[in-house]
Amino acid sequence: MVENVTPTIKDNMREPIKASEIDPKFKYQLTKMHGAEKLLKCFQCGTCTSDCPVARYSDSYRPRTILHMARLGLKERVLKSDTLWLCAACFTCTDRCPQDVEVASVIRVLRNLAAEEGFFPAVFKDQCASVLESGYAFKIPELRIKKRETLGLPSLPKGNPESIKKSLKGVNFMKHMKNKGESPAKQ
């Protein structure tokens, strides 16, 4: 079976906790970020995990645990964990959370922070490179573009890479796009 989980990031959700690894202000850093404002309302009921389709088949992905670890201040562990990347963004947890925590958005905020530090699956780098080159997240093969005509479809609008690059040049994440070809998921 194919398992493309970034292999260099260790699953570290279940190791014993040392006081020295706790960042007590991490939760306040998170609640200032768009989407994670309501993190502190979480009362650990577990609705998110019990209704999560991914948690059903993954033995490590548990949204409740991730939120708990984030609140405890286990910043490094959460951000370096590959389980963070299993969320399918179905938003079931967000819609069913009795505390309106927007669980999926908190997960996204954590992923964004992990990505800023260089921890993210390589597939995102490919997609970002494609957007910067063509405007599309997937490289649409020339053959497909030409085939549109024979299928009776209007020609595909050209993306505007120069304009897109200008819009995105101030974004922090773009710093990872300078060293193309280098594995981003390194520890």
Binding site: A89, A115, F124, Q127, C128, V131, G135, F173
Partner: peptide
């Protein structure tokens, strides 16, 4: 261009 969704996990701003 791309709607942005595929890159939301790595950069909400993007």
């Amino acid at each position: 261009n791309c709607c942005g969704l595929p890159l939301d996990p790595v950069s909400h701003e993007t």
